[in-house]
Amino acid sequence: MSAEQQHAIAVDQLIKYYSQRKKIVSPDGKVSRKQQVKSVDGVSFTLQKGEVLGVIGESGCGKSTLGKLLVRLEEETSGSIRFSGVPSKELHKRSQLAFRRTAQMIFQNPFDTFDPRYTIAELLTDTLKLHKIGGSYDERLAMCEQKMEQAGLVPAQHYLHRYPHELSGGQLQRISILRSMLLSPLFIVADEPVSMLDVSVRADIINMLIDVCQKENTAMVFISHDIISTRYVSDKVAVMYLGRFVEYGPTEEVLHNPKHPYTKALISNSAMLESLEQKREVIRIEGEPPTPINTGPGCYFYSRCYQRRDSCQSIYPDFTDVGAGHKVACPYTS
């Protein structure tokens, strides 16, 4: 087996541009010109089986677009995604069902995930039926029941014959995770799976997510704006800003020894219980992220950076390794 085949997922220079038509009135009449919104702009990473990558960043930085690209809910502009060495495009073309067995997604809002007209039993067994798993309805139902009880929804009978609106957000999110994991996918994307839930149930959902991924040896991309829960879930962390990774590396290394000015600002601004014991200094960054349309040649973070220099404006910094797989896109890290 080659090195490439060992990776559950390998993403190389993934790019997604949305085109936008903007009418610009020039002196010689109306001119229609295409603009490109660079939503995801050259993202590369690899994950082994069972590894978890946490993607953090502000809203509008392209986290969710990246998630959708990975499970082919969006078509990429260029770049490649490979699952165990097989290009995802090919896999998807060959058989959509086979692709869905490889890559699955968990969405943010569990109330929107399910069709309100079906019971939980129907929703879960339909997935198995589509993939021709199990011989009869009863057999499939028994399989679902077993999986539910393993995931802590005890007794399963209590939930199976209810409709989605009869369950709480936490219970629904568990079922949503369970349904995505029914097919034992190789890779899963969890897009803000806990941000809609109450604080008291978040912990349980995070634990369940970690458990199922370990049990099935599934690689996961965990998208969140909550740095602290990301720390619990992931092995690696990527910080995203305007469609690019600005920092990438092992979780503890990136979060406790951040190098990029954006990561530092992000961490210093997030409210934590620890701030009770020691007052941390809050790094101020100005304004909101700009829209990724005319990004210019320089560093994207230039306009908000607190340690910018003139040289940052002329060229986008390289993604350099500062040791132990910790990569940063900023030359002034010391």
């Binding site: 008291s200 349980d204 995070i206 720390r231 934590m272």
Partner: peptide, 23 residues
């Protein structure tokens, strides 16, 4: 106590976080 236990912490060891059962 339960509420505080369900919040992950940023520093230190990754202690077991736990939600409050029930609603």
């Amino acid at each position: 106590k339960g509420l505080l236990k369900s919040i992950p912490s940023f520093t230190g060891e990754k202690r077991n976080i736990r939600g409050i059962p029930g609603s």
